[in-house]
Design a protein around this nucleic acid. Structure first.
Lengths: 205, 205
DNA sequence: CCTTATATTTAGTGATCGCTACAAACTAAA
DNA sequence: TTTAGTTTGTAGCGATCACTAAATATAAGG
């Protein structure tokens, strides 16, 4: 009884930094920045606080690295350039987004779209960084649309589409099924199709 | 010096309960549930913690009353029954929502749409209540659409519209201007109009 | 006047927050 | 083998968290 396991206390790093970021990412993704405590993080990763601080500097530092990791995931905004026309691009964007926010093997919703929407005064700067990342999402989408639309139309449609994406993330977190979200996407695509938007590279079908 | 102001310590209630809810509502609206501490609340209202607990039971209790107060505000979902057709209904809904989430005299965004999207495990039950309120928003919108659409189409379109509303709230919190949001709304309305939805009460124009 | 009831303040409670000083324990270089 | 340099766990920092026991002050009822 009470045979204490002697834990090692020195030498080279014993925990996997990448794996630690992955664990932190999923915690922050699900519970938000304020919803995860340092105790949650160290317990889930399996290290003591000083190890975390040596590796990441602060809770906010780890959060930023988790965001970067999340952004690098193969999700909605990657591989959209292969579509044949505007409607396919929109459809593909939404389909991938829906698959992403309802992936049964991952947390629901989007860490960027639904991250730090509200937070205490003390973390206002961090919240602004999140808003900046959302703004970059919009720019990325606009760029994907420019093969088929002039700059103004692309900007306008991309603002509309990120709004959809942010709403889809909320819906997913609230428990909407993949089919529910596909129905929303079909509403969007039907609207875009019906409008017959000016398409200066290929004529709209 | 140090002539302490003697504060009254008994007798009938001295603070305005309604006004306290108003103050709490704005704090929660801006910073979220986890972003507001009891110290923030008591300091802003101007009372000591026991007074708050006597009046509202708990932080969560005050939050719920703040949500009820918010829901009673004359915002997006009221007075939509006066429109002449489906497109006007959608247009009015979006216009009111945009006015609401960008009101310069109030906090930005929607307290329901953007409330408790992420939170710690400890407040999961409260978060579920918020999700339930968002679900009720969808039902309310569906009801407003049923004069012009059959039940299935109304359900589908309302799900699409709450998604837009939730996205608009994020956009507003991120600093989007009223004109930015009007542009999004025009994308939505253009799509709905162009689709010529089955309208079994009045023919689509 | 005195009693009762209630609302208030002070002054905390134990728990947890993000974070860190420190020394033990390890490797690698001298 | 010694030394230098890291990384680790322990232990605990001061601050803040949501919340409350107890005492005090007021108003209403008799």
């Amino acid at each position: 009884m009470d045979k204490l396991v002697k834990k090692r206390r020195g030498g080279p790093r014993t925990f996997d930094r990448d794996q630690a970021i992955d664990i932190a990412m999923r915690l922050f993704w699900r519970h938000g920045y304020e919803g995860v405590s340092l105790n949650d993080l160290t317990a889930a990763i399996g290290i003591a606080p000083p190890s975390l601080y040596a590796a990441f500097g602060s809770k906010a530092g780890l959060y930023r690295e988790a965001l970067d990791r999340y952004s690098g995931l193969p999700r909605a905004l990657s591989n959209l350039g292969e579509t044949a026309n505007l409607y396919e691009a929109v459809e593909t964007l939404l389909d991938r987004a829906i698959d992403a926010v309802t992936d049964p093997d991952e947390e629901r919703g989007c860490m960027i779209s639904s991250g730090m929407i509200q937070c205490g005064e003390a973390h206002a700067a961090l919240a602004r960084e999140l808003a900046e990342r959302r703004s970059m999402m919009r720019d990325t989408i606009a760029l994907k649309l420019e093969p088929w639309l002039d700059r103004n139309h692309a900007a306008s449609l991309s603002r509309y589409l990120v709004t959809i994406l942010q709403g889809l993330s909320v819906q997913a977190r609230d428990g909407a099924s993949r089919e529910d979200l596909k129905q929303i996407a079909s509403e969007v695509v039907a609207g875009v199709k019906a409008r017959n938007l000016p398409d200066y590279k290929r004529g709209a079908p």
